[in-house]
Amino acid sequence: MTIAEERIERLASLARDAAAECHDDRARDYVRLARRLAERNRISLPKEFKRFTCDVCDVYLRPGKNARVRLQDGHVVVTCDCGEQARYPYE
């Protein structure tokens, strides 16, 4: 595991903890830093991190607080407060 991957995982855990404590601006900063680090080093973000962040407003999603999660015809639909929807398949 490279230093960049370790740093991205650390930023993801910091974003999750900040979002749990209702520090949304701090969580958004951690998400932006992690994305920038991944782009700069040409590595992909962890699957869990991708699914719990909004691609448009960079907020860390907390189901029931700032995100709505619904099941539809074989996929999960996660809707952020900004209106952005993400769809993920499930079996």
Rank of each mutant, 00 (worst) to 15 (best):
K47H: 09
R87M: 09
N41P: 02
A38D: 01
R42A: 10
C54R: 04
E6D: 12
R87E: 12
D73M: 11
R70K: 15
V56T: 14
I43E: 02
H75V: 06
L37I: 02
G74R: 10
A27R: 01
R32G: 00
S44T: 13
R10W: 06
R36C: 02
H75Q: 14
C22M: 11
H75S: 09
V59I: 15
R40W: 04
A34S: 05
V76G: 00
A38T: 02
A86S: 15
L71G: 07
R87Y: 08
I43C: 04
E84Q: 14
C57V: 01
T53P: 01
D55I: 08
R32P: 00
R26S: 06
V69I: 12
R68W: 04
Q72R: 14
Y88T: 10
V31C: 04
E9G: 09
D25P: 00
A12I: 00
Y60D: 00
I43W: 04
K50M: 12
P46V: 03
R10K: 13
R40Y: 05
P63R: 06
D73S: 15
A38S: 03
P89Q: 06
A34H: 01
G83H: 13
N41Y: 11
A15V: 06
R36Y: 01
I43M: 08
A15E: 03
D24T: 06
N66I: 04
D81R: 10
Y60E: 02
R87C: 09
D17E: 15
R70A: 14
R70G: 01
A18H: 06
I3W: 11
Q85E: 15
L71E: 14
D81G: 08
L11H: 05
V56L: 10
V31N: 01
E91A: 15
E5N: 12
Y60K: 02
A27L: 02
L33V: 01
V69F: 01
R16G: 00
S13V: 09
C82T: 10
D81V: 07
H23Y: 13
A12Q: 08
L33E: 11
V77Q: 06
